[in-house]
Design a protein around this nucleic acid. Sequence first.
DNA 1: ATTACTACTAAACGAGTAC
DNA 2: TGTACTCGTTTAGTAGTAA
Lengths: 229, 229
Amino acid sequence: MAERSAWRHLFTLLKLAEMGAHRRTAKISTEYLARKLEMSQQTASRHLIELENQGWIRRAITPEGCLIKITDTGVRELKRLYSNLRFLIEAAYPPSVTLEGVVFTGLGEGAYYITRGHYRKQFMEKLGFVPYPGTLNLKLTTDYDVKSYSELEAYPAIEIEGFKSENRTFGSVKCYPVIIENKAKGALISALRSHYDASVIEVIAPVFLRKHLNLKDGHKVKVEVLTLP
Amino acid sequence: MAERSAWRHLFTLLKLAEMGAHRRTAKISTEYLARKLEMSQQTASRHLIELENQGWIRRAITPEGCLIKITDTGVRELKRLYSNLRFLIEAAYPPSVTLEGVVFTGLGEGAYYITRGHYRKQFMEKLGFVPYPGTLNLKLTTDYDVKSYSELEAYPAIEIEGFKSENRTFGSVKCYPVIIENKAKGALISALRSHYDASVIEVIAPVFLRKHLNLKDGHKVKVEVLTLP
DNA sequence: ATTACTACTAAACGAGTAC
DNA sequence: TGTACTCGTTTAGTAGTAA
């Protein structure tokens, strides 16, 4: 989609396809096309010229109209639009949800939990990294973010199984892969403890995020949560 | 799709949907939208206003950006586009093929064939009408039309079964529903005899087409052949 | 009948800027 | 930071018409 007018042309292309020009050479006069697109004959003519220059159609002009065939490139454009739409309409979940929160210092409990052996092993297996021994705490700033976060609950997550030690029980944990500040990969861990505050999220990563991204308390951080296919 | 700019807005709507605004309220600033659409912040702002007036989105403006939700009407627009595209891309056959030919007077054999009882009965059952006892002969005018006609062979058709009388065998016939001159319904009958000329088609209808459409030898006639789903 | 050029009009866009 | 106004510029669209 190089030029701005490309979008307009895509619709003209769509109409041509509706006339069958994507599978066989179709005889379509500029006047006929113009009526179908509710535009003038001159504009239709110009669009065809531009579509041809763009390489989306091939054309032969006869005294009875144009013989038009959409090229493979043109068909590819239509298919791209189609798969975009299919993804949107058929998909049960959005591809990602972006949350924004403010960095704060917690009680350091997160570090204790995520360094337990059974958790660590599963992080490696299921997330592909061993987390830095500490979590980045973020306080969600707006109701919008809190609401987005709560909607995440309904989406499929990576399950980290719980286990029992001599003294106590460690519950199961839900993880979502995330991208922090468009730079670092990591994961959001949910329900580590029983939701003591629905407006707080904890993020783990293979690196020390505070240092890696130069974060200090009070900084705003964007976290893009990737939902699973 | 009332106004001309509706196409452009549909594209903007698609981008909003890609940001998840079709399933939940999404926080999207005009500046962010502008970057994604490769347009200016001002234009993005204007588009959102127009989209709202069009009833395709609902919007709440906050100091941190707009909270945008695509309305049911907006989603319907996207779905309409989607099903148009799906039909084009997934469908094995085009919805219709238009043929153009010149009226001529044949030998009157067609009338004999289509009035045979076994044929007549099946026409009624499978086409929904008893044909006027005569066929309209059309000589296809261009190579393009002949080629289009030959491609029809590959498409699914209504099969009229053959039969045997005391004297001879009547072969099976393929029919395609057609619309003649955008006015009258009928059917194209193919292979009634063994293709003595691939540039001639025969059309039947419940009415006497020559009279009904005031056709005379030499007149050009457009026939829209409907392919089956 | 066609297509498509030129000259003009209407609409969309974006810079600057107010809020 | 945000949104969105005005206004000059650019682009898309049309009428008339030649080929």
